[in-house]
Design a protein around this nucleic acid. Structure first.
Lengths: 330, 330
DNA sequence: TTGAAAGCGGTACCAG
DNA sequence: CTGGTACCGCTTTCAA
């Protein structure tokens, strides 16, 4: 069913029917009513594809995330969604599951939909794709990858700094045998955060470090912790790449009859809502996701702070809670 | 940039260029190569709107959920997404935030996109909209609302049964003063689960029940529990509508210096991943989300079990963990 | 194998 | 105020 049929049944031209549907001015009220009644009777829904094609406009933006199950991405997504809806924008979401191949597919799909802006909040974005997005006429936001260009805004989080804070804090508490829990993406065996953590830990001469990576989930954190404890049962601290994995790690530690933080201190990263609600509450590093979302939306609509071409650096903040304490004597 | 330009630069007709893009047979290899090289050079992405319009097909389905932050909906969504991607379907997701008005908007948007199927996993679906979706030619799946029709499959969860099990279990443990934590939707002050729980509790003559509702989140569970304890500090059990709220409630209980389950038993609902990883691990009611997702996808592609017109009843299962125990003497 | 042309369902400009 | 109509970008016969 299409506009033509609506027009015919209402006894008007397609043009007039279209005007009514778009609330255009200069349409006689009686005509408007007549058309609308047909629309309702027929449960007519204008074909959005045709509309986009003809209108050329789009009023929609794309958001691509690595893992919508991870609260970090989820929070950013929902905040952007709220901002977009407030200004009558639609939002296309794509989930890549940490697969670079899926990123390419999603980007292509977004471009095909002619979105007015695109935010790629994914860690597995490859350089080639970044370059490809470079020349487009729409605002693009990258997260922690690529370099700002005239249409590209880059939001960068100072992980190094966050992990630095975490490490020196744990070190000052006397921890010298530390486990690091990362998660792997589909391609790499470990993600960037893990690598940064290893690098920083290496600077401390007397710090023994073990690492393990698993999938990004509570379950993954649990398994990684198990492996870590198998390799070195004398660890006194575990630094996890994010809060979910930390909560998973705490479960495993408890299941082995150890206590957090008495026997082992655990830290998360991101400071998602769960960090305050789990037990013990998690020491973490706050990444202001609402700020990131605000910046993403700002870049889409061209605000000052996020004017395309800018690079925005997000500074993390150490949040001390109950999951960390002095290293156990051994 | 469009197909015409690609065709021109490759020195072929639009038709041929289109054939190449669609991997149609009967195109000379050299031609194919020539066209593809132009495509790559120009970073050409076919306009999906035009493609849908012309092709008439769609190969996309819509999924509408109440709250993507709620792991219950999230798990169903991601499982459906995985199934859809496996068969090269795209998926449009819409999040309603429990607002009936947003449901209407989302449904309209999905119809406008001419999706090949629609799953509305929302509790706030109103009858009128259900009726509207009735006559469409596409498979539609509702969750816990409406009645099966020729194109409509209804997936129903036997909440009543789940809550029944929970209540009688707690009762058998000696609990006689129980708090019920629900969450409200934007319109109603409480959702269906809460009402069912109240109704069932009322059957037990000597069961004192208090209820509280807040937003659907960890924080909401925390606040609701606080209110409950203020109203009746002698509660020995709290039954929460879902696991997230239960985890929030446990935090509050702990913060008041009480222990779970020694002083107060807590139960969740849904049995999401977090239920096993929180501390203490949560007694809950398992709703097989993967089965629901499978049924949704089945309805989209017309499988046996979910043939449109069917009603599928999901039976919940009680999962006992550490958060419940005998009622404290008082 | 390839090209020409008729739509797909709207929008918007130009007359009337 | 309303109608006619030239596109929007692509798919898909039908011929060549």
């Amino acid at each position: 069913m299409n506009l033509e049929e609506v027009a015919r049944r209402a006894g008007v031209s397609i043009a007039t029917a279209s005007r009514v549907l778009n609330n255009a001015p200069r349409v006689k009220d009686t005509t408007r009513v007549r058309v609308m009644s047909v629309v309702e009777k027929l449960k007519y829904h204008p074909n959005l594809h045709a509309r986009c094609l003809a209108g050329g406009r789009s009023r929609s933006i794309g958001v691509i995330v690595s893992n919508i199950e991870n609260p970090f991405f989820r929070d950013i997504y929902t905040a952007v969604e709220t901002a977009a809806h407030a200004e009558e924008y639609e939002i296309f979401m794509a989930n890549t599951d940490y697969r670079a191949e899926q990123v390419a597919t999603s980007v292509r799909s977004m471009m095909g939909r002619r979105v007015a802006g695109l935010a790629a909040i994914v860690s597995e974005m490859d350089q080639e794709l970044v370059g490809e997005l470079n020349g487009y006429g729409i605002p693009v936001v990258f997260y922690d990858v690529g370099a700002p260009r005239h249409n590209i805004t880059v939001i960068r989080v100072n992980y190094r700094r966050g992990i630095q804070k975490l490490t020196s804090y744990l070190y000052s508490l006397g921890h010298r045998r530390m486990g690091i829990v990362g998660h792997h993406t589909q391609q790499a065996q470990m993600n960037e955060r893990l690598e940064v953590a290893m690098e920083i830990a290496a600077r401390y001469g007397d710090l023994v470090v073990e690492t393990a990576a698993d999938v990004d989930s509570l379950q993954g954190g649990c398994r990684a912790a198990r492996r870590l404890l198998a390799v070195n049962p004398r660890l006194t601290a575990m630094m996890c790449v994010n809060d979910s994995m930390a909560v998973g790690a705490m479960r495993e530690i408890r299941d082995q009859g150890l206590r957090v933080p008495d026997d082992i201190s655990v830290t998360g990263f991101d400071d998602v809502e769960l960090a305050q609600f789990c037990y013990p509450a998690l020491t973490s590093v706050r990444i202001p996701r609402d700020q990131i979302a605000k910046d993403i939306w700002g870049a889409m609509v061209g605000s000052e702070r996020t004017r395309p071409g800018n690079e925005i650096m997000i500074e993390p903040e150490l949040i001390l809670r109950e999951s960390t304490g002095p290293a156990a004597k051994s």
